[in-house]
Design a protein around this nucleic acid. Structure first.
Length: 311
RNA sequence: CGCGGGGUAGAGCAGUUGGCAGCUCGCCAGGCCCAUAACCUGGAGGUCGUAGGUUCAAGUCCUACCCCCGCAA
């Protein structure tokens, strides 16, 4: 008799985990809870969350709850619990806080796959946060959820190195995969009481907020090292940009340089062309710009960009 | 029809009141040099997104459509 699971998830980070649970015959995914379809993209097309598409492909019922906090959501889940005797909820990048009342519903509890080494980088932008902070490694934590954000006791962790050229997208995909591979055994062991949950060291906790586009605006008074990490961390979401001549310019790839340029540059944020290369001055040092995208143009190398500049 | 920018040589861009299709880089050939990604000379490479319209004449003006991108989500 497979364990009955309800899967909560929305973003791309969730899909590998859902996929392995579907494929693993120790489990049966009875339902998938996800956010409402959103208007998305340049033409505001209504698009289903990726998790919903995967669920539908496998004929799994999908619940799109307007608000997980709403009484109606609770009663829906409670009714399912009564009918189906759900063993556990699995929450992966669901994007909403789940109340204790709901967490108490499944027989064994609610487990969460989180993209950082908790207690560090609690919150929504854990992957970006780890890279931006200059951490040498990050990882996946599987934990037992409680009412506080990413606060519950941990069941398992697996680390991965953050390489010097890793982007947020690359680490995100890697962690989604690591989490998915780790999940089934941890979930089964948890239900069978083979794992002792370990309380987090709460005094070592760090937090990160949900990122908005505006967070990608580069503050050139920061050091070149710091900005270089930020550019990588925020690729592809939320991306980094700066304003030049009242136009937005996205910054995709940069390289730190030695500090020689400091003497030739008066002000952080100033653009400097030297030996056919493009630099922007920072608070400490300068950053060579390797790839960028002016507003309305497509992404291009600094070399291509400079070819079109009238000097 | 959510708002906006754009499509011109392989790449990135300029192109004025309609009047010979340009710039930087790259590419090819030759030269200079101990040598070079440096420098000099020469060369190739275009259906100006597509279709139609106005005009003696359209990259340029008008209409429709296609495609790329920024905002927004």
């Amino acid at each position: 008799m497979p364990y009955s699971i309800i899967f909560f998830g929305t973003a791309d980070f969730s899909t590998p985990s859902l996929q392995v649970l579907i494929d693993d015959n120790r489990f049966q995914v009875k339902a998938v809870v996800t956010k409402r379809d959103m208007k998305v993209g340049r033409h505001q097309d209504v698009t289903k969350p990726p998790v919903k598409m995967l669920a539908e492909k496998h004929g799994i019922p999908v619940l799109q709850l307007d608000s997980i906090k709403a009484e109606s959501s609770y009663s829906t889940l409670k009714r399912i619990q009564g009918e189906r005797q759900i063993d556990a909820y699995v929450v992966v990048s669901y994007g909403k806080i789940i109340s204790q009342k709901v967490l108490d519903l499944p027989k064994h509890g609610v487990i969460n796959v989180h993209g950082s080494l908790l207690p560090k980088h609690r919150g929504a932008s854990c992957v970006q946060s780890a890279i931006a902070a200059g951490d040498k490694e990050t990882g996946v934590t599987i934990m037992l959820m409680d009412a506080k954000m990413d606060h519950g006791p941990t069941l398992a962790q697996k680390t991965t190195e953050i390489k010097v050229d890793d982007t947020g997208g690359m680490v995100h995909d890697r962690l989604a995969c690591i989490g998915a591979l780790l999940l089934p055994d941890v979930l089964a062991d948890f239900i069978e009481h083979k794992i002792e949950p370990i309380e987090q060291s709460h005094n070592e906790a760090t937090y990160c907020k949900t990122l908005k586009r505006e967070d990608g605006k580069i503050d050139w008074s920061k050091s070149a090292d710091e900005i270089e990490r930020l550019v990588r961390a925020y690729d592809p979401w939320p991306g980094t940009y700066t304003i030049k001549d009242d136009k937005r310019v996205k910054i995709f790839k940069t390289r730190t340089t030695n500090n020689e340029l400091r003497t030739t540059v008066s002000e952080p944020g100033e653009w400097v062309i030297k030996d056919g290369k493009l630099y922007i001055a920072c608070g400490d040092g300068a950053l060579e710009i390797l790839e960028l995208q002016p507003e309305g143009k497509r992404r291009m190398s600094a070399k291509d960009y400079l070819a079109g500049q009238r000097l």
